[in-house]
Simulated scan of single mutants.
Amino acid sequence: MSGNWIEAASRDAIPEDDVVGVVVGGRDIALYGVDGDVFATDNVCTHGNARLCDGFLEGHEIECPLHQGRFDVRTGAVMCAPLTDAVRTYPIRIEAGKVYVDLG
């Protein structure tokens, strides 16, 4: 694998329609299980100091537990106020039952 791919979790550790927080390469990352896919973002909201893994995942949107702003976990895009800045996303690879994140 080219890039900065680091093993983040086993695929089985990421429940469908849920989010888990992991530390990958010293970074706090949120991993989301949605429609059979896995997505990764920074785990800290860009609006307040809240961990996204403590939020509510509905479809492709994670709701921050602090002020209820939502991000699209596929793109990091802001979906509603009070958020103004997108959250960083990371590429994912799944090989041999393990999830790898490219921290780039």
Rank of each mutant, 00 (worst) to 15 (best):
D42A: 02
E58V: 04
M79L: 15
A77L: 12
P82C: 02
V44I: 15
I94Y: 08
P65Y: 11
V23L: 02
R88D: 14
A30D: 03
A81C: 10
A77C: 14
F39K: 00
G59N: 14
E95M: 04
T89F: 11
K98A: 14
R88Y: 00
E61V: 02
A40W: 07
D18N: 02
E63V: 03
V19T: 12
G3D: 06
Q68C: 13
T84Y: 03
L66K: 14
H47M: 08
S10R: 08
R74C: 03
C64W: 12
L103G: 01
R11M: 03
G76C: 03
G76I: 09
F56T: 12
R51Y: 13
G33W: 05
E63L: 06
G48H: 12
G3N: 02
R74A: 09
A30F: 07
D35I: 01
V23T: 15
R88K: 13
L52S: 01
D37W: 14
R70S: 14
L83F: 08
G97Y: 10
I6E: 05
D35K: 05
A8F: 02
E16G: 08
R88H: 14
V22A: 07
I94C: 10
V24I: 12
D18C: 05
G25L: 00
H67L: 11
C80S: 09
C64S: 08
N49M: 11
R51Q: 11
M79S: 12
V19H: 00
R11Y: 12
V44P: 02
A9I: 01
D28Y: 13
F71S: 06
L31D: 09
A86V: 14
E16T: 10
G104Y: 05
V87H: 04
V44L: 05
T41N: 01
N4K: 13
W5E: 01
I94L: 04
G36E: 03
Y32H: 09
G104I: 13
D28S: 11
Q68F: 15
L57N: 05
E95R: 11
V101P: 06
G55V: 03
C64D: 04
I29K: 03
F56D: 15
R93C: 00
L83Q: 00
A50F: 07
E16R: 08
G33E: 13
A50L: 12
L103R: 00
D54V: 06
A96I: 11
L83T: 05
D17K: 06
T41F: 01
A86C: 01
G3E: 02
C53A: 15
L83A: 04
I92M: 04
P91V: 01
V38A: 07
I14F: 08
Q68H: 12
D17S: 15
S2C: 13
A13V: 08
T89A: 11
G59P: 07
G26H: 13
Y100P: 00
G48Y: 08
